[in-house]
Design a protein around this nucleic acid. Sequence first.
DNA 1: GTCTATATGCGGATAGAC
DNA 2: GTCTATCCGCATATAGAC
Lengths: 184, 184
Amino acid sequence: MAKAKITKEEIIKKTLKAFSTQGYHYTSMADLAKICDIRNANFYYYFKNKEDLMREVLQYVQQSMEKKLDILLQQNDILPKEKLIQISAYIEKLYLQNPGGCIMGNTVLETSFLDLSFKDVLMDFFKKWIHSLTTIYTEKFPAQQAQELAEATVQDIEGGIMLMRLYRDDKYLKNALKRAVNQL
Amino acid sequence: MAKAKITKEEIIKKTLKAFSTQGYHYTSMADLAKICDIRNANFYYYFKNKEDLMREVLQYVQQSMEKKLDILLQQNDILPKEKLIQISAYIEKLYLQNPGGCIMGNTVLETSFLDLSFKDVLMDFFKKWIHSLTTIYTEKFPAQQAQELAEATVQDIEGGIMLMRLYRDDKYLKNALKRAVNQL
DNA sequence: GTCTATATGCGGATAGAC
DNA sequence: GTCTATCCGCATATAGAC
């Protein structure tokens, strides 16, 4: 087959930023077309509809996160605290580099009352994140407490992203990440 | 003047629930008209536009919160911990009674990239909340630490609301409130 | 103050040529 | 695979009668 002007993966990467900043509903297909430098109609060759595109975008983020966490956790030669520091660094890079914060958390609050196909992707994302943190905290705390600590950490970070966007000050996210590491 | 079929305040109270659950953009004037049992056009007699209506809705929530916190804090005859418990109870009632969670946090994430007139109301809301918690935590911790603890508490709660909506499980919010109280 | 009717634009999505 | 043209519905908002 002939080389496409733009690949599916390129579309996903380029639209991610827009969805991340502006949210799902507010980002129009026209916006996305401009960003990708293609025509509005071309999306429908690659994706069934807007919802399907969003699903693939979220899946891309979810799978990147999952892969990254698996690699980090499998390191046998480093201390738990060091793993935590690495996760923090990853999260900070992920959420600090664009003004939109966390596309997963944003999308939950924007769409949780609707019956959209990508809800399970959002659930997988946070489930994996919490589970990874639980695994690490288990090295110091009993299982139940480690689980709650992991949930609290994710909540602290996600709430921090909200305040970061409101006040345009990244101290809220940075402090949350610091607290997460200091649990060990 | 003749009695209006519906007052401005009634509109605000009735539309609050819809905005809270569905968000700002997704809630249409038609939705709101149905809820209030008036015609679409009638809103424009009371409010300049949709943004203006939303501003008044958020202001109503903000002012209720402010009043409540002021009353709670002014009690001289009770322990700081008891104040914290009362605030928790208020927050729990406020955020648990409808499926939309926290309209203020939702609205921040949905609209913070836009230049909307109600941004200052959102900032006032969280500023007041954090400040009140700081005041209480100051009874046990040094100022700087109390401030960070207050921020962490709000972040924990707001993140908890997000997970609560995602997994339809109120344990995330309830645990966050418990942690807030247990700081004292 | 509340109504009917409607202007006006933008949203997602499709048809069909090339 | 990519294009142009266009459909159709819904959004906010306004005009003007009652």
